[in-house]
Measured scan of single mutants.
Amino acid sequence: DVEPGKFYKGVVTRIEKYGAFINLNEQVRGLLRPRDMISLRLENLNVGDEIIVQAIDVRPEKREIDFKYIP
């Protein structure tokens, strides 16, 4: 289970104008929005990159997770 405030290693699987989709595993995916990136820009991410993200909002009923990147 993903818990708000905890850090997780994930893989960038898709990049859109509104953010990057990060997979923690095959069943768990969330969104990293540009506003939640500190010292990292969306255009510097590539599909396949491994990054450490912090879960900031977890909505299991909608199967949605918002992430934050903190270097």
Rank of each mutant, 00 (worst) to 15 (best):
I51S: 00
P34F: 08
N44H: 15
N25W: 12
I52D: 05
Y69D: 03
R29W: 14
G10M: 04
E3D: 08
Y69W: 09
M37G: 03
L31T: 04
E64Y: 13
L31W: 05
Y69Q: 05
V58G: 04
G5Y: 09
E16N: 09
K17W: 15
D36F: 08
D1C: 12
A20Q: 00
E26W: 15
N44Q: 15
K6D: 04
R29L: 09
I15M: 07
V28F: 08
K6Y: 09
F21N: 02
I51N: 00
K9D: 04
V2H: 04
P71F: 06
R63D: 11
E50C: 13
Y8V: 03
D36P: 01
L45R: 01
L45Q: 00
I65M: 05
K17Q: 12
Q27H: 15
F7L: 08
I56G: 07
D49R: 05
T13N: 05
V53K: 00
M37V: 04
L31E: 01
I56C: 06
I65Q: 03
L42E: 02
G5M: 09
K6P: 03
M37E: 02
P34Q: 13
R63G: 15
Q54Y: 13
V47P: 07
K6N: 10
L31M: 08
L42K: 04
V11T: 13
F7I: 08
V47F: 05
R35W: 09
A55Y: 03
E26T: 14
R63V: 07
E61I: 10
I15P: 00
Y8W: 02
F7P: 05
L42N: 03
I38T: 12
E50N: 13
V2Q: 03
Q27P: 03
Y8D: 00
L45C: 02
L42Q: 03
V2N: 02
I70A: 11
E64A: 07
E61Q: 12
G30T: 02
L40F: 06
G10Y: 02
D49F: 06
G5S: 06
D36V: 03
D66A: 09
V53P: 00
V11W: 15
R33N: 03
R14C: 06
E50R: 15
A20M: 03
L40N: 05
E43M: 09
P60G: 09
R14I: 07
Y18W: 14
L45W: 02
V12S: 00
Q27V: 13
A20L: 04
E26V: 13
T13E: 07
G30F: 04
N23H: 14
I52P: 02
R33D: 03
I56M: 14
Y8A: 01
K68L: 10
E61R: 08
K17L: 12
G30P: 01
G30S: 01
N23T: 12
E3N: 09
I22M: 02
K9S: 10
P4I: 15
A55R: 04
A55H: 01
A20I: 06
L31N: 01
L45F: 05
I52G: 03
R41Q: 13
E26F: 14
G19K: 03
L32M: 07
I38G: 15
D1P: 14
A20T: 03
V2K: 03
D49M: 13
Q27T: 14
K17E: 12
I70E: 11
D1M: 15
K68D: 02
R41A: 12
E50A: 14
Y18F: 13
I51L: 13
G30M: 04
R29Q: 14
K62T: 12
P60A: 13
M37I: 06
Y18I: 09
R14K: 12
N46F: 15
L42S: 03
I15Y: 01
I38N: 12
M37N: 05
V2G: 02
Y18G: 05
V58H: 06
Q54I: 13
K68F: 09
R35L: 07
E64C: 07
N23M: 12
V47E: 07
K68H: 07
V2R: 02
L32I: 04
R59M: 04
G48W: 08
I52T: 12
N23C: 09
Q54G: 05
I52N: 05
Q54M: 15
I38V: 13
D57H: 14
R29N: 08
V28D: 08
R29G: 11
E61G: 13
R33A: 04
R63M: 13
Y69N: 05
P34A: 12
K9M: 10
V2T: 04
D49H: 05
L31S: 02
K9A: 10
F21R: 04
V2I: 15
P34T: 10
P71C: 09
L32F: 01
I65F: 06
D1K: 15
I70T: 12
Y69M: 05
A55S: 04
I70N: 11
N46A: 15
I22C: 01
E64G: 07
R63W: 11
Q27N: 15
Y18K: 05
G5V: 03
Q27A: 14
G5C: 09
N44D: 15
E50I: 15
K17R: 14
E26P: 15
R14G: 08
L32E: 01
Y18L: 05
E16R: 10
R63A: 12
